[in-house]
Simulated assay, not measured.
Amino acid sequence: MKKRLWTAGIILALFLGAAGVNNQLAAIGAEQAKTNSHFYEGKFHNAEAVTPTSLGRTLAIMLRFFTEEKVHAVPEQALPIQTISRVQLLALSDNELHLVKLGHSSVLLKVYKEFWLIDPVFAERASPFAFIGPKRFHQTPISIEELPNIDKVLISHNHYDHLDKAAVKQLSRKTGQFLVPLGVEADLIKWGLPEDKILSFDWWQEMHTDQGLIAFTPTRHFSGRGLSDANNSLWGSWVIKTAHQNVFFSGDSGYFQGFKQIGRKYGPFDLTLVETGAYDPDWPDVHMTPEQSLQAHLDLQGRVMMPIHNGTFDLAFHAWYEPLERISQLADQHNVRLSSPVPGQVLSLQQSLDTLRWWQPLIPSLQTAGGK
């Protein structure tokens, strides 16, 4: 009951805007947004409409948290992680692309000689509060202090499980650039980050670097850290194209035709990191089921799929392992190559990305016959 009260409390706090939010786009983002077809009536909008949030829907979901029994929402045993150090990261070769899943949707890349972070969340809870809200299942495999200098931080949108205020402020001291969706620069500036470190992106906007191309692409989602800033900032996904590898990072999204557009424009992709978790029939427009995640990977013309947005926080009603188990079964059925590393495992895109299904020994029903 205590956990249900905490979770419901977070939903209510977000609905009422108790976190303290910014109601205005920063000037740079506001001026650019005025020219966009997806920005009108003072808000950003999806290319494919989603069911609008209402007080009734919010209260109905809160009621579910109070009354619906969750089964295996949190692991009963410690999850495996591989701790990594700055020395190990600096020793990685400079002539290929390396990747480390830190947990949930947080990813560390070594793009040749540069280190990039995507949606870095190091907080104990995905919440505006330190004492309440979804608590992580495992620690991060490396601390911010131990990280080497970071050249770029890429943010997909401003939800608490993707934009960690404390982490961003701490990373500011060792990061060269923050690449964010339009409007998110307002949060970062408010938190004290220098404006000259922040670059804001609209959908389909590109940036050329010494390593290749970075593009910000659409998703079907929403933004806000409280009621009063709903959809004041944009949301999206990232394309990273280098001379030898092509990577897609989905951020959060419901399934939509935009994945096919991205695949046609920027694909095929050597690796797609696709949201696979925190889905539910109560919010089908803004998060994907594993079946839809697999279809998104196929639409993107992906070679290997890495399911993200799972295994770290309890953000829905399904079992913690369900997204990984369902997507692995679907991948087998459709002959899709899947990579699902444990947090901290270092992968190279020039080598095999296949991994063991580490979560299966932790599924209670597989531990004892007849278990539930």
Rank of each mutant, 00 (worst) to 15 (best):
A8P: 00
A243F: 00
P364G: 09
G258C: 13
D332A: 15
R357I: 02
G263L: 10
V168F: 15
F131A: 01
S127D: 03
P120V: 06
D187G: 03
L147G: 00
Q350F: 00
E146A: 15
G302C: 11
N310M: 05
P290C: 12
K372N: 07
N232R: 13
T242S: 14
D332F: 02
Q245T: 11
F178C: 01
R264D: 14
F201M: 09
T67H: 01
S85E: 11
K135H: 06
A331N: 06
I28N: 09
W116S: 03
Q292S: 06
P307Q: 10
I363F: 07
L362Y: 08
F44V: 13
H98Y: 10
Q88P: 04
L147Y: 02
G371S: 15
G176R: 14
T209E: 15
W235A: 02
S328P: 02
P341S: 14
V71L: 14
Q205I: 10
Q88M: 13
R337L: 12
L55K: 13
S105D: 11
K241Y: 02
K197T: 09
R125N: 08
A130L: 08
A78I: 05
W6S: 11
L102N: 09
H334L: 06
T140N: 13
G212I: 03
L182N: 02
P361V: 10
F216S: 00
H208F: 05
N231Q: 11
F201G: 02
V274Y: 03
V247Y: 00
I214Q: 06
I262T: 14
V180I: 04
T272L: 09
E145C: 05
R326A: 15
L353I: 09
L366M: 13
L315H: 03
G176S: 14
D196G: 05
K241P: 01
V71G: 02
D282F: 10
K101Y: 09
L330Q: 05
N231H: 06
L356E: 15
H208M: 14
D285Y: 08
S250Q: 08
N246T: 11
T355I: 11
L330A: 07
R125W: 00
H244N: 14
T242H: 03
A130H: 03
L5Q: 12
E185R: 02
N231W: 01
G183E: 05
F115H: 10
A167P: 09
K169R: 14
Q77E: 15
Q211C: 10
P218E: 12
V121Y: 01
L349M: 04
V286Q: 05
F44L: 12
V21C: 04
N310S: 14
S233G: 03
H38K: 10
M1R: 12
L109P: 01
A47W: 04
L193Y: 03
S253I: 06
F129D: 11
R264H: 13
T175K: 01
L338D: 08
L353T: 05
S233T: 11
L90T: 08
Q245H: 13
S37Y: 04
A130G: 04
M1I: 08
F137Y: 15
R225D: 06
V107S: 03
